[in-house]
Design a protein around this nucleic acid. Structure first.
Length: 562
RNA sequence: UGCCCGAUGGUGUAAUUGGCAACACGUCUGACUCUGGAUCAGAAAAGUCUAGGUUCGACCCCUAGUCGGGCAACCA
């Protein structure tokens, strides 16, 4: 993207620039990324992370990482660890140490006492069902709780009792006294505190009452000096409440502002934490970091780079309308980045033997290959070449059509970095499958030699049979076969799982330069795709994950003619 | 029968605030290529949800609809 041109602003940037012009909040810009530590981060969170940290960078501001840990039932330190790792991996640095909503439990409690004293909050002794029933429905006003008009003293006493663990879980709640007939359901005396006798991952057993999201979020923003609190659209109807709580505590000109944007949807995938958790728990994928998962951890393992995800986030933009981003845009973003940085190597996924009958038996010569034609700095390497090679089974047809620029009886191709060979014949096994291709080569056609080179249509990748290493390769395809697996009213998203989302290839042959790869290493398997070394690799057997295939003209041609 | 959002090529996002629709992905040509990759050149594709109104002029403002999404957890 051209940095020099003035990029048009998205609606959030416009708001911020206007706030800046108006001198709001002393010209500060301070955002925050507020995940709940109850699951792994996914590509949708990446959008939010890039937005929040990106805005802070753009306006010389700050961005906090804040764990929104007000519900001890689902939250865990395992998740806070993974979230910190993911944010860092994406390339962002939060201001100071991570913050936790649980750090504010004391202050929040005091503010609740203050609300009670102002007559703006009360303890409700009713069971959940009664409260829920009295809330009414969106089209009909609710009715007031019989406990709504308790005295301040009684409320104070009961709330303290709640805090001291004197009552059973679920027996009482603290509610704000706002308006039971509000057209906005969230303003119908929302619950501020509930009794939860659960151990919290940070505060342990200190508290048995926990604040609700609405009662904690705006205040947390306020305490941290957040100026622009960016969240997703479903919180739009919460904003009046957000502002109501702020109104009760604000003492100066500074005021955080909630702005909502549309969450990311990606075609052929699901994005809800609940559904992702289900995939993991039912063993339909191999954990949160399964390379088919849209989690940051999964994408990292798949071979995505932080830059590719940041570029993707840039390109999709930010707006308020619902959107479904085509996965091809994500794929474009990885290819674009990997094309620049991934060393090229030769690997044959589905090998078939090729013998050069006129090549001397006992000779192995080294041929030189560029590591990355896109990067002159990347240098070159030497790869062994001899009489017996492997090529890709796909690169040979016994009766090829004209458009097939590869090998077939009587046809000539270049072996990348080596010689031009001509197919003289082939052998088949008992099943009629090609088992060996017999070629002759022209010794004058060695790559890099000055002699005039005949033009051939195709160039194939290959590996030398004698020195090739074995590898396992895992090919991933989309996890779902439906564009919007979660979008069907009466069908479960699991019905759309792609049974072929993972193909494991054994006996793949790779060039010997790959003898000591490390997990996370990324390569372009020439003419095939981008691959990343998986942590499952062992010293004798590297395992590669296909990040994304190369664009493939031939497959399009093939499809058209079938 | 409520309240809150939103609507621009297949997809996403723009249009410097009222000057006659641009960029990216995708698609399709062609060039180039020792990766059918990359790169380069080009094309098709929306007349901006509908109907009125204001205006010399509307994607932009007004009115009324239509369609889509969200809101009734002691979740976030």
């Amino acid at each position: 993207m051209p940095e020099d041109e003035k990029r048009s602003l998205n609606f959030i940037e416009s708001i911020i620039e206007e706030d800046l012009r108006n001198g709001k909040n002393e010209g500060r810009v301070h955002t925050r990324f507020p995940p709940e530590p109850n699951g792994y981060l996914h590509i949708g969170h990446a959008k939010s992370i890039c937005l929040n940290f990106g805005i802070a960078q753009q306006y010389a501001g700050k961005c906090n990482l804040r764990f929104d840990d007000t519900n001890p039932e689902t939250e865990d330190t395992e998740y806070v660890e993974s979230i910190m790792e993911d944010v860092r991996w994406l390339g962002f640095q939060w201001d100071k140490e991570p913050y936790y909503a649980s750090d504010y439990f004391g202050q929040l409690y005091e503010w609740a006492v203050m609300l009670i004293k102002k007559g703006l909050a009360y303890v409700d002794d009713q069971p959940q069902e009664a409260i829920s029933q009295q809330r009414g429905v969106p089209t009909r006003p609710g009715t007031e709780s019989p406990f709504r008009n308790r005295t301040v003293e009684e409320n104070l006493r009961l709330f303290e009792g709640m805090k001291n663990g004197e009552y059973e879980e679920g027996s009482r709640v603290l509610r704000a006294k706002i308006d039971m007939s509000s057209p906005n359901m969230h303003m119908r005396d929302p619950i501020l505190y509930r009794i939860l006798k659960k151990e919290h991952h940070r505060t342990g057993n200190k508290w048995v009452i926990y604040p609700m999201y609405d009662y904690a979020h705006g205040q947390s923003d306020y305490l941290e000096g957040i100026t622009h609190s960016l969240c997703t659209l479903e919180f739009e109807v919460h904003r009046p409440l957000y502002d109501w709580f702020l109104d009760q505590i604000i003492e100066s000109d500074y005021r955080p502002r909630q702005i909502e944007f549309a969450r990311l949807n990606l075609s052929y995938t699901v994005m809800s934490k609940r559904k992702l958790l289900q995939l993991v728990q039912q063993g339909l994928v191999n954990g949160w970091d399964d390379p088919r998962m849209p989690t940051i951890a999964g994408m990292r393992r798949r071979g995505y780079t932080p830059a590719s995800i940041r570029n993707f986030a840039d390109r999709i933009g930010v707006a308020k309308r619902d959107n479904v981003i085509d996965v091809s845009l994500l794929e474009f973003s990885v290819r674009e980045d990997l094309n620049k940085i991934a060393p090229r190597v030769m690997a044959v996924l589905d090998p078939v033997e090729l013998v050069i009958t006129n090549y001397p038996e006992a000779v192995t010569e080294m041929v030189s290959l560029e590591n990355n034609p896109e990067d002159p700095e990347a240098g070159s390497r030497e790869v062994p070449f001899s009489r017996r090679l492997y090529i890709e089974r796909d690169d040979f047809m016994t009766d090829p059509p004209a458009k097939f620029f590869r090998l077939g009886p009587g046809r000539e191709v270049r072996l990348k970095g080596a010689y031009i060979v001509k197919c003289e014949s082939y052998e088949t096994d008992a099943d009629g499958r090609v088992s060996r291709i017999l070629c002759t080569y022209d010794a004058d056609t060695r790559s890099g030699t000055g002699t005039k080179q005949p033009k051939v249509k195709g160039t194939l990748h290959w590996v030398d049979a004698a020195s090739a290493l074995d590898a396992e390769v895992r090919l991933y395809d989309r996890l779902f076969m439906d564009e919007d697996p979660a979008g069907h009213k009466d069908r479960d998203f699991l019905e759309f799982l792609n049974p072929d989302s993972l193909k494991v290839l054994k006996g793949c042959k790779i060039e010997p330069s790959l003898s000591s790869v490390m997990p996370g290493d990324k390569f372009q398997f020439q003419r095939v795709g981008y691959f990343c070394v998986d942590p499952d690799s062992t010293p004798g057997l590297p395992v590669f994950n296909r990040t994304v295939a190369l664009k493939d003209e031939w497959s399009k041609i093939k499809e058209k003619h079938s």
